[in-house]
Design a binder for these strands. Sequence first.
DNA 1: CAGTGAGCGAGCTTCCGCTTGACTT
Length: 779
Amino acid sequence: MQKNLVIVESPAKAKTIEKILGKDFKVMSSYGHIRDLKQKDGVDIHHNYAPQYIVPEDKKKIVAALKAEARKVEMVWLASDEDREGEAISWHLAEVLELTPEKTKRIVFHEITKNAILRAIETPRDIDLHLVDAQQARRVLDRIVGFELSPILWKKVKPALSAGRVQSVAVRLIVEREREISHFLSEASFRIVADFLLPDGTTLLKTELNKRLKTKEDAYDFLDSCKDAAFKIDETVTKPVKKSPPAPFTTSTLQQEAARKLGYSVSQTMAVAQRLYESGRITYMRTDSVNLSDLALGSAKETILNVYGEPYYKFRKYSTKTKGAQEAHEAIRPTYIADEEISGTIQEKKLYDLIRKRTLASQMAEAEMERTTISISISQQTEKFVATGEVIVFDGFLQLYTESSDDENEKEQDNRLLPPVRPDEPLTLKEMVATERFTQRPPRYTEASLVRRLEELGVGRPSTYAPTIQTIQNREYVLKGDKEGVERHYRILVLNRLKITEKEKKEIAGADRNKLIPTDIGIVVNDFLMEYFPHVLDYNFTASVEKEFDIIAEGEMNWTDVIDRFYTVFHPIVEKTSAIKTEHKIGERELGVDPKTGRSVFVKIGRFSPVVQLGVINPDDKNASKPQFAPLLKEQSIETITLEEALRLFDLPRTVGTYEEKTIEAATGRFGPFIRHDGKYISIPKQMEPLTISLEEAIELIIAKRRKEAERSLKKFGEAPEVELLNGRFGPYITCQGKNYKIPSTVKDPKALTLEEVMQIIASAGEKAQTKKRTSQKK
DNA sequence: CAGTGAGCGAGCTTCCGCTTGACTT
């Protein structure tokens, strides 16, 4: 019988610690929080905001197990994380497990090493109730904000929407960025580059003019004036530049780098990191700390010295700059830095490699570069041509790791070596080119760049970045999508052999892939919240309440007073906003009058999607014609749709024509535009529109669909028509009476399967499902 | 996948942060 029970938050951590502490200690996990506010009436507003906690259904089992174990031991050690949430978890455990102070000790450690844990055991403390109160304030504030704002949206905009301290700010960032983009006016200017020949007649020097010229005329005049100008080397400046490695990974920086370098989505990164953590390869993946343990620093040093040698090593201590960071864990790093390769999936290997390189690089010497700038003077002119080159003198950490950048427009680095030149050396102009360039609009957010912005604002925590991004997409406030670019012309002037020629070229500008784009619902909800609750949507709201939580944690303020101060201002606005009677729906826009019927045309958020509405309800006249509705097309938006575009939507559903003596209709449905023919539905692809699709195009779609369906079937079994081998999204599979079965990976050629083998697969799959059911019932 | 939609009506939806499973046609 063990005398001691240690409770931590994560089961993977529990396993490691149990090994360290030995047989006198049993280590169990709480799996995070064990209690939460009741779903309904979780905060008793009228009794000083008393929180009403319950153990959620899915936590009852673990709580019962902890309770049983706690009863058996002499001492319970509460070892949840050393931050606000962790302190609260310990307090909830003490309450729920009915632990007496005599048999309870609170311990904390930042790293899972023998030393750290033994030291923690030697220096226990009591639960910090002030810190717990700060957590309660955080929890209650979030509940009040979320559960008072959301119902207003149900009433005013659409059912099942949501608002909250974190998600609403995330949506605001995306909506405002989109507005910046649509208001952005790009400015043109001419960039002048010139290629010179050195006196040897062969060495080329590529340069750029040190300023841009506003108009084509300016550019022309400049090129013209260079026809008979003399060029010579003005001066050469060489200066050393140093570059330091980036800090080890936190959740946020890992998500950003994995997106840029490996193309992972934020949630993908977290899922892969979770597996690496569970298999003991890396430290905890939800952290805002850049700190490395002494043990990690030591083994990083050893590895660098062994592999790269003394000059490449440099001891570094990083400190966080992030607002509101709680630093309960270490930075994300390999558990055994010396392990260069690990077993696992390709995804796991790649992410591990990234983490390992970043960790090692953080303890390496800075890279030393030499940046050379050669300037070239032009006779009779003050402007100069400039050539820059950068040479790496000592690569330092760059040998192992280079941080990527979000900025797609960033100039390609001038890593080239410049030829040796002497001052006053004359140069021969080979060619000069003036190219029209445009200023860039602000970039749309990616998942990862949104996370970075939220972290900068101190909004959200490492454990919530990925779920928050999911939520705002689930609510259809934003979607991850592509934007077509627009074709743009630009002009080029070339000066060659004393002649200036002009060309015009085309480019696609502003195209975007896989970026976060606000929907109409997102825009309408954001504008509404900004109008009535600007305080909550303020980018500094979280930061300012965090300050108050800190004061609570210091014990210098009552948490209920902080909440009360907020609530007495907030709630009346909720009441007032809720009571506002508007003739029109929030976000509704009147486009004008339909010339045919004389009825007004509106756009608004409908029950299912944005719609156009023709006419209004007349409550006094039951026989008056009812309003007509039509959903907006995917590319259209409430903000930008015109009256003409809106009126055309009422032409749907539209008869496209007849094929095989059956009519083809085009319309827009729940899942986008489609055509219907002979009782079958076929989606209309992006390049076509239901309003304009031609009969030929529609017939092509029908034929393509039929072909695809025919290809779907790999094999049929004459003796058993209910069994079929199909080709699906994830490869071949078996279907039988409406149920699908996976083909075991041991089968090399699914097409060669006999009916007997197929039936066996079905039977064994059935068995598996049976045993699974039984085990889950036992639970 | 499926093509809906103005008001008598029942009750539901929702927050943020801490954790990992049970799912994979």
